[in-house]
Design a protein around this nucleic acid. Structure first.
Length: 858
RNA sequence: GCCCGGGUAGCCCAAUCGGUAGAGGCAGGGGACUUAAAAUCCCCCGAGUGUGGGUUCGACCCCCACCCCGGGCACCA
């Protein structure tokens, strides 16, 4: 027998898989069903981290299992290769984003191959490849033709010092991250996609996604934020001007005593002109512009605002109400204007209290003391009856909502409305390392798309980024200077690039036919493989990526490029990989240490203790990461994969533990000894189980039960930790089993072969090696998945627990097919049971077949 | 504050439909092997399920209230 040496076997099988193209999908479907397994592709940041190892280990189990079940499995991998980190790294290291990115891809591809994942590497794609993004450009032009893409003004972080737009993450405390002074908001034309056209479909579609975690669906529903209400027009006193508000509480309209406008609302600036308050209001608007959004959003921030010098007229009672601008009113929700009802809205209440504005109660809670504006300590937001509401008095407020809207409709001053929180998708990024926008701006013709024959618009790769924070494209004449495709005059190419969520919104489509050069996807391939049957990734993408991808799918469907409504049928969100932290020092001086610098709570370098912090998500900043490279070098891929899967079920967080890794190493070593150490006996074992011993029967039962539970754990329960535990159990059973000859030898051989196959999705290298050792021909991947034989798992006798009054008092062995009456009789006959039951006939007897008898004494 | 998870042995985790709380691993104790150690093998120890109520013949599981931890969020009119 040899020792288990992963370094000697893993590379060998990886080479074999690559050479045989084991994981390539058959060109034509041979009558087999397809299974499209996809894990979220990584951003090529440098090296793999443990989160990747876990994500891809989970996906690989599912892919390998489905393949074993006879599916044509599509399991691709690629690179989400555009993004800001590449630009930053390029500036720091004086290199080019493309070079940095491609070098990272090479490193990470090597690591993935070392882990032995079952990808079809021929389908690998990188989103920064022109053959990829050209289709994004082509489809974008189609979206523009359909009116789905449009331009509108948006606010951007502008740094005067750099003369560029900054991403949110490049703004630190309102200042430019490169120390070039304050950042101000500047309006610029931006490309947008009308995702809001699909609000209802995106919302209703969630109900069809039974294979998605409810947490993700809940978050998406909240993000779309559909609410029913009314839009109401208020006239401005003395002006030819209406203000439109959105409210979910039209029933409180009679209680409206003032109006609040967002500081950014155009009317705020416009209406104050010529009033004594003008200067103050303009100062307030500017002041609000510099306050960080996060701070304004914080509910602890005090309500702030001021009168803008104008009044509005309540359309139902003619009341003249002051117009305020207020910090808590959001410009981009609803209409950016709020009818304030301080008696029945807590925010309006606080604002009114602060600025001494009148309250008017219009909803009276049923059966309680009348509300008194003088003594109210909070707004009343509950249900009740309408009062001080003209003809609506006495109406329950719910019914009042419709009644007031009807009244407004008659007056032509309002209507029933549905409002969504979701806003259109802003696409333009003033960045370099992204997909160029395939549009030309011509003075005469306006916006002109780049003709299809001229696609792709290539991102130049031979430019210097310079040391300002911005993109070189606007100053790169060879890039932006073009002739208008329509009239031929001098024109300017759009120098923005797309949000990188664009590329990740359709990569699952491109994988179906990554080399297709007639369009985004070969229709036949799309028909064969879409949608993704199982998607695996982090919960952090619950909203943005997963919502954009769903939207994009619907757009592609409407453009006739793909069929189907949803991109991902089943979704699994895996938990984070966590580790405790080690540090010293106080506050900002605190210095962190990597786990491998620590031994027994002490820094190896000086032998002195460090502060051991809580178990939190692995991150570079806290240095609580474990390097997959070292782990791979020391234990090999199978152990690394196994530990990630064994430590916790996929959706839960994993606490990294070195001792747990050791345990997995020991387990695979035990498997090795049990199988490799008995290879000759296993190979020589007969086929027949005639004359099996009692122990042999038990082993066979264990084998077949393990097959059944592991299969169920993988396929239905997606609980790989228990599947591995079952494999450990079977290993233990094999290790302690003595028989090697005759029928018992056959039972041992059966168990060993089953173990190897069951283990193969988790630890494919050792499984293949042992399979070969046992004389297996070809690859283990081509062997069928074992099937549990119910005749073997069946038991002749069962242990029935006898409870008296709900407490366990005895147990009895009975034939498995015992009847209820016989089981109860057998239980009653027991001396121990009699003692607890007493003389009287029992009040109640419950029999759970094969499990227990519960006798409740009289 | 609101929404979504989670709290089981010293630790990570099982208990699948409301039916014996313990499968698996780690750690700990004892033993075997060894000159010794490592490795390996065998045996053992261990909680009554965050807290308090309730429903039930029976509750880790269902209901109510509360505590703690994690994640998410929208002052959304």
């Amino acid at each position: 027998m040899s020792d288990y040496k992963p370094s000697e076997i893993e590379a060998k099988w990886q080479a074999r898989w690559a050479q045989d193209k084991t994981f390539a999908v058959a060109e034509e479907a041979g009558g087999r069903p397809k299974f499209y397994m996809l894990e979220m592709f990584p951003y090529p940041s440098g090296k793999l981290h443990m989160g990747h190892v876990r994500n891809y280990s989970i996906g690989d189990v599912m892919a390998r299992y489905r393949r074993a079940q006879g599916f044509d499995v599509l399991h691709p991998m690629g690179w989400d290769a555009f993004g800001l980190p590449a630009e930053n790294a390029a500036r720091e290291n004086n290199t080019h984003p493309a070079k940095w990115t491609r070098s990272n891809i090479a490193t990470m591809r090597g690591q993935l191959k070392q882990l032995g994942f079952s990808y079809d590497w021929d389908r690998e794609l990188a989103t920064c490849d022109p053959d990829y993004y050209r289709w994004e450009q082509a489809v974008f032009i189609k979206m523009w033709e359909q009116g789905l893409a449009y331009r509108k003004k948006g606010l951007l972080n502008w740094c005067d010092g750099c003369g560029t737009v900054l991403a949110n993450e490049q703004v630190e405390d309102g200042d430019c991250w490169r120390g070039h002074g304050p950042v101000r908001q500047r309006e610029m034309e931006q490309w947008n996609l009308r995702i809001t056209n699909y609000c209802d479909e995106l919302l209703d579609g969630l109900d069809t996604l039974e294979g998605w975690p409810s947490a993700v669906k809940v978050q998406q529903r909240a993000w779309i934020g559909k609410s029913h209400g009314a839009s109401i027009l208020f006239a401005v006193d003395g002006q030819e001007q209406d203000i439109e508000v959105f409210t979910t509480r039209p029933d409180t309209l009679y209680g409206c005593t003032f109006m609040s406008l967002a500081p950014e609302h155009p009317l705020t600036r416009q209406l104050c002109v010529g009033t004594p308050q003008e200067a103050d209001v303009l100062a307030f608007i500017d002041a609000m512009g510099t306050v960080e959004k996060a701070e304004r959003m914080d509910d602890k921030t005090e309500k702030q605002g001021l009168f803008i010098g104008r009044h509005a007229i309540n359309p139902v009672n003619g009341r003249r109400i002051p117009i305020y601008t207020a910090n808590f009113v959001l410009a981009d929700y609803g209409t950016g204007a709020v009818m304030a009802v301080p008696a029945h809205d807590q925010r309006d209440f606080e604002f009114a209290q602060k600025y001494g504005i009148d309250l008017q109660v219009v909803i009276q809670p049923e059966g309680e003391e009348p509300l008194d504006v003088a003594t109210m300590e909070a707004a009343f937001t509950g249900e009740g009856t309408m009062v001080h509401s003209g003809t609506h008095d006495g109406t329950p407020n719910e019914a009042g909502k419709t009644a007031v809207v009807a009244q407004l409709t008659e007056l032509c001053r309002g209507s029933s409305t549905i409002n969504y929180r979701l806003r259109d998708w802003g696409l333009s990024r003033q960045r370099f390392w992204g997909c160029p926008v395939p549009m030309v701006h011509c003075e005469a013709c306006g916006i002109v798309p780049v003709p299809e024959a001229d696609l792709p618009v290539l991102l130049p790769e031979d430019v210097s980024l310079g040391d300002h924070g911005g993109s070189p494209l606007p100053v790169l004449e060879s890039f932006w200077k073009v002739d208008c495709p329509k009239c031929g005059a001098d024109a300017r190419r759009d120098t923005d690039t797309f949000d990188t969520f664009m590329e990740s919104s359709w990569y699952q489509v491109r994988y179906c036919s990554p080399d297709y050069d007639q369009g985004m996807v070969d229709p036949a391939a799309a028909k064969r493989f879409l949608p993704v049957d199982q998607y695996v990734g982090g919960i952090e993408h619950a909203v943005m990526h997963l919502l954009y991808a769903r939207f994009y799918m619907k757009v592609l469907r409407d453009l006739g490029i793909v069929e189907g409504d949803e991109p991902f049928t089943n979704l699994l969100c895996q938990g984070m990989v966590c580790h405790e932290t080690y540090s010293r020092g106080e506050g900002t001086e605190r210095k962190y240490y990597y786990p491998n610098e620590i031994e027994d709570g002490r820094l190896k370098a000086d032998g002195k203790p460090v502060d051991v912090g809580p178990v939190i998500k692995m991150s570079k900043s806290k240095k609580n990461t474990v390097d997959p490279e070292k782990l791979l070098a020391h234990y090999g891929a199978d152990v690394a994969r196994l530990f990630c899967l064994f430590a916790a079920p996929p959706h839960k967080d994993v606490d990294w533990s070195d001792s747990g890794v050791d345990g997995c190493w020991r387990f695979l070593s035990r498997v090795w000894r049990a199988v490799d150490g008995n290879a000759e006996a296993i190979k020589a074992a007969p086929d027949s189980f005639d004359g099996l011993s009692k122990a042999g029967k038990d082993l066979r039962r264990t084998t077949h039960q393990t097959i059944a539970t592991v299969t169920d754990d993988i396929e239905r329960r997606m609980q790989f930790n228990t599947a591995i535990a079952r494999c450990m159990e079977l290993t233990n059973a094999l290790s302690s089993f003595k028989g090697r000859e005759g029928a018992d030898g056959a039972a041992f051989a059966e168990g060993a072969r089953a173990l190897v196959r069951l283990l193969s999705p988790f630890a494919p290298h050792i499984a293949n090696e042992l399979w070969t050792t046992l004389g297996g021909e070809g690859l283990l991947e081509d062997q069928p998945w074992p099937v549990s034989d119910e005749a073997v798992t069946a038991v002749s006798e069962v242990t029935i627990v006898v409870m008296v009054g709900g407490k366990r008092r005895d147990e009895i062995q009975l034939p498995a097919d015992v009847t209820e009456d016989d089981a109860i009789a057998a239980a009653m006959a027991r001396e121990k049971v009699q003692k607890w039951v007493g003389e009287k006939p029992p009040r109640f007897v419950k029999y759970v077949p094969g499990r227990l008898v519960n006798i409740v004494p009289g």
